[in-house]
Amino acid sequence: MNETILLAILTIITAATPLVFAAIGELVVEKSGVLNLGVEGMMLVGAVSSFTAVHVTGSASLGVLAGMFAGVMLALIFAFLTLNLQSSQVATGLALTIFGIGVSALIGQPLIGVAYEGLPKVQIPVLSDIPVLGRLFFGHDILVYCSIALVIAVSWFLKRTRAGLILRAVGDSHDAAHALGYPVIRVRYLATLFGGGCAGLAGAYLSMAYAPMWVENMSAGRGWIALALVVFASWQPSRVLFGAYLFGGISILQLHAQASGTINIPSQLMSMLPYLATIIVLVLISRDQGRIRRNAPASIGKAFHPTT
């Protein structure tokens, strides 16, 4: 039974990783005061671009880079429209998703039936062979470690660096930040592009590691879940990790419960569990209003134009 639990945890890690990437990127975007609802579209374009790159060049690293680059490109469209042309962030993000679904399907047409064996796993001699712990901590693909490192790095960046402080200041009050001489638009540009890169990376993880293939719409709503997780985390990076693993965990555990053959609950109700659990946990951790207010970027979604 312990063996099964260990294996289930390994599956959960894979299921949670794309959510971690997309959500941590969006967290930085939102911290700067921008709400980009186009995560799903950026993920898909990232997924198809990385798969194309791997297919053409055979290089996994180029694949990952291509995914990130594609995400950044879509984010650039979003940034230009919302930051320069002041278009509505909510609507532009949704339009970006429609656009991304279309573009990715168009790019992906030659990739039907193309196979890829998936990202290699990192095997460390001796360490990987330690029973239980060795398999828990070693032997994942490299991106799993990157996702955790990224959360730590973002957390450190936001809390401990001057640049992070400026980013938060811009997200809390762009007018005040502008008055202090901080380049509001440039900060938001950089944050938005970072978010795009992360969403692209999440897409790359989908098409290169999670289910190594390209099929249209393969993100199947994960971009939306990532958006919800940022809210769930009340804009704290460590909680993004917690949320992604909670959501991924319950998704996997309900599959295990079904496979065990001992649970007589209709599968549709079982499939509701990750969504319901996320709501319930959010309710439990939202009691402390002050804490949320401290972390939530106050000027999120609001347009800024420097009045010089």
Binding site: A211, V215, M218, Q258
Partner: peptide, 19 residues
């Protein structure tokens, strides 16, 4: 039997296979 409630979600299908 594992019911995934979708015709088409590579990630979820992979998860079900792993489970």
């Amino acid at each position: 039997v594992v019911w995934v409630n979708t015709w088409y979600d590579p990630g979820k299908e992979a998860d079900a296979a792993k489970a």
